[in-house]
Write a protein that binds this DNA or RNA. Structure first.
Lengths: 159, 159
DNA sequence: AAAACTAGTTAACATTGTTTACTGTTAATA
DNA sequence: TATTAACAGTAAACAATGTTAACTAGTTTT
């Protein structure tokens, strides 16, 4: 019987973990929250809630590492669901300032709790030191892979 | 200045790491390999190469945690690029046996090297013990989140 | 023989990501 | 000042992925 350990891409288990997180936890949260008004884009909602400076679309794109074209659609979704307003910045009329509506402010605790619950469940059994260790590992992996130029990957075919 | 640490969903950094892996490393590998014949579905290729029992579509779906409908399209892609053959199993004519073509066998070392390179880059600076520790953490997180019933997530709105 | 199950396919649709081209606004500079 | 470059956001088109439902064909169960 083949196991996933025999497939080299699964030696790095990040992909597997991510799939399970997405399917199980975000999925569960989505179903819970669709009755309240939205069923996705929770991280964008959280980012808007906690933005400490002027919250433009470009700012959100950079923060969440999402293409600005896609961000337009995310924000269209949130506008159409009554969660945010877009206002032109009078100081720089190119910019749109994103703000939560009253409705959004009301449901933010639910989203925050949901996200907190996800983290609590994911790290069940970890003590503080282990959690820090894990986060450090991930930070290192991110640095190892960040800004990897396409041309640096150079693999030759064996004859 | 808001940092990603202020957004609770980023306290669990798996999502962030996964995005970087996908964009940088798989992206780089894709560009390298498109000249050889394919630019995606490398994990499926690796799984087929190392399958130790009869390699049906259902088997691959289960192993790679991919929907069987999507698997049809992945295999259509690989057939159309001359990488695999589909043969009806004479012992059970419902099943299709997936096998690599000669062309695929030729490029598999490139894919294997690419994947190995990804792991090497990602874990640069890790010693064996740290790598094992990290993998153990990920296994625990996977177990923590696996089969999480949708109904178990129960969050109440604060008034 | 009928019913239930399994493997795979097809079609339709939604979401996400990417590219290109575009409008309008602001900043840089010659 | 006039021109050019840069920036924020939008629109349209398209590809890739994920999901559901309905379907064919073959196998197993009863």
């Amino acid at each position: 019987m083949i196991s996933k350990k025999d497939i080299p891409c699964f030696e790095n288990p990040l992909g597997k973990a991510m799939g399970i997180i997405t399917k199980n936890y975000w999925g569960a949260l989505s179903k819970k929250l669709e009755h309240i008004g939205i069923d996705r884009h929770f991280t964008t909602m959280a980012a808007i809630a906690q933005a400490k400076e002027k919250c433009t679309q470009q700012y959100l794109s950079d923060l969440l590492a999402v293409d600005k074209v896609h961000m337009v659609r995310v924000l269209d979704y949130l506008v159409s669901h009554g969660m945010i307003t877009r206002t032109v910045n009078p100081l720089d009329r190119r910019e749109h300032i994103i703000k939560h509506t009253a409705k959004a402010k009301k449901i933010m605790p639910v989203i925050q709790n949901g996200i907190a619950e996800m983290n609590k469940t994911a790290f069940k059994g970890f003590n503080t030191k282990e959690k820090e260790l894990f986060n450090g590992f991930v930070e290192t992996i991110i640095l190892n892979l960040k800004n990897l130029p396409v041309n640096e990957v150079d693999i030759k075919i064996k004859k």
